[in-house]
């Protein structure tokens, strides 16, 4: 009985202590942030959204390769010799048209791994966090600033130049092959002239002719 009373007393005491704490909080200040009216100030380096400064991008694809979830899609077209794409603000020469630079923010896991490998620091996280969408496809951000017509033109040009180059290369290859042939023929002739009198080198001649 005494034990029960003692226990009850301890229980009451602890309840009153607890109630004292809660009533103090009742009259205390609240920590709520009334969200749409007052917004939290994120630190400058908050990782809330990826942003690409497309002017500085050299299309090196390092960020896409660093991404663990493959949410960065980059298509590049090499620039033709008649156009100079200029340099980035960090001084790296640009050699590619960026026909596509898409980031799927629905897939992104904000890990920051794409930011560090970038040689020109053109991809980075910004602290904008209110970009929800009703349609998931709207979360794919297109950073490439090339018009579709421009893309087609650039692609054609690049294809042309590539074809031209290919042709040139083929030409060169042919020329080289021809030259090599000529040389071979000449060598043959010389050898023949040289070996006119000798008959021992007959098999080696045959081999040369085959190759």
């Amino acid at each position: 009985m005494v034990e029960a009373f003692k226990n009850s007393w301890i229980t009451f005491k602890s309840i009153f202590i607890g109630m004292g704490i809660t009533i103090r909080h009742f009259f205390g200040k609240s920590v709520t942030l009334q969200y749409p009216d007052e917004r939290p100030v994120l630190p400058n380096n908050a990782r809330a959204k990826l942003y690409v400064n497309i002017d500085d991008c050299i299309g090196c694809n390092l960020c896409a390769r660093a991404c663990p979830v493959n949410c960065i899609y980059i298509d590049t077209v090499p620039s033709t010799s008649d156009v100079d794409l200029g340099k980035t603000s960090t001084g790296n020469p640009k050699r590619f048209w960026l026909t596509r630079f898409d980031i799927d923010m629905a897939k992104c896991m904000y890990c920051d791994l794409c930011v560090h490998p970038c040689p020109t620091n053109c991809i980075y996280m910004v602290s904008e966090y209110e970009y929800s969408e009703f349609n998931r496809t709207n979360l794919i951000y297109h950073f490439s600033n090339l018009e579709p017509a421009m893309v087609a033109e650039v692609k054609e040009k690049a294809a042309n130049e590539a074809a031209e180059k290919q042709r040139q290369r083929e030409e060169m290859m042919r020329k080289k092959a021809e030259e090599a042939k000529m040389k071979q023929i000449e060598a043959k002739k010389q050898a023949e002239e040289k070996n006119d009198g000798e008959k021992g080198s007959e098999p080696s001649k045959k081999e040369n002719g085959d190759s």
């Binding site: 009533i23 909080h25 009742f26 205390g28 609240s30 920590v31 709520t32 009334q34």
Partner: peptide, 13 residues
């Protein structure tokens, strides 16, 4: 509201 104030929140606003 009581719950909110006790828990340092504001409750429905």
């Amino acid at each position: 509201k009581v719950a909110g104030f006790i828990q340092d929140r504001l409750g429905p606003m």
